[in-house]
Amino acid sequence: MGAINEIAARLLETGEAKVVIGYGEGSFGSVRPAFARNQEEAEKLIYDKRCTQNLAMYVYKKEISPLRKLAIVANVSTLRGIIRLASENQIKNGDIITLYINELGEVIECKALSEIEICLAEITPEIKPEDKELIDKLDAMTPQERWNFWISEMESCIKCYACRQACPLCYCTQCAVEVNQPQWIPVAANTSGNLEWHITRAMHLSGRCVECGQCGEACPVNIPIHLLPIKLAEEIKNIYGTVSGMKIQESNTLSTFKPDDKENFIG
């Protein structure tokens, strides 16, 4: 096996990490998140082009977070998730060793968060062609057509919250949908309850979303729900020039006022 197994084995052996979050063989040719806690499990880690899932949400998961120090096998999505979590003070230097696997298949071991920034400096984030295509299609619609599209999609939502659970940035200990005094968002998975949930979530992610598309991937009923935060990320980039999850010292764009902010969208 490749370098990833050797590095994972070493980190576990030296005690630099108690668990290595990575990928393993899954069902019927798929890959799944895998967790190496010992040599035997380290041998089973894999990395190849199937490993597109963003694993950053495991960093703060209650069953894993207490095991810090952690190590994590990272693609670009995961790197950006980690950097964004760091800029929101959810991870600090020393909590995690990141094993970034670059385009050439080389494993770059980042012990400091600043080393991840260096890796990311060489990358221009791109969204998937099929997502771009659907966004363009939606952009070309009239507002009414777009509304109808989303209403029709929302009817299928079952409020399983797979989108939230899969998101590297949905780490709130109490989600807005779980607040019931007052009940801001209806609990039922009806069209209005679903709309309110997804709009709230998209707005909470705007300027924070790292465009991994994990929410849409996770959706069991194939709602392209990731397009909402991804479109908002695009808008924010166009208006403010900021891209989330690239630099640690990055402010929260929508909640930060700068004197030179554009005001041309205020009607």
Binding site: V19, R32, P33, A34, F35, M57, Y58, K61, E63, I64, I158, K159, C160, Y161, A162, R164, Q165, A166, A218, P220
Partner: peptide, 15 residues
Amino acid sequence: EYAMRCMGCSACAFV
């Protein structure tokens, strides 16, 4: 291991 991997959504139950 399931405790670590399962992310706690309700997709399995709802489908």
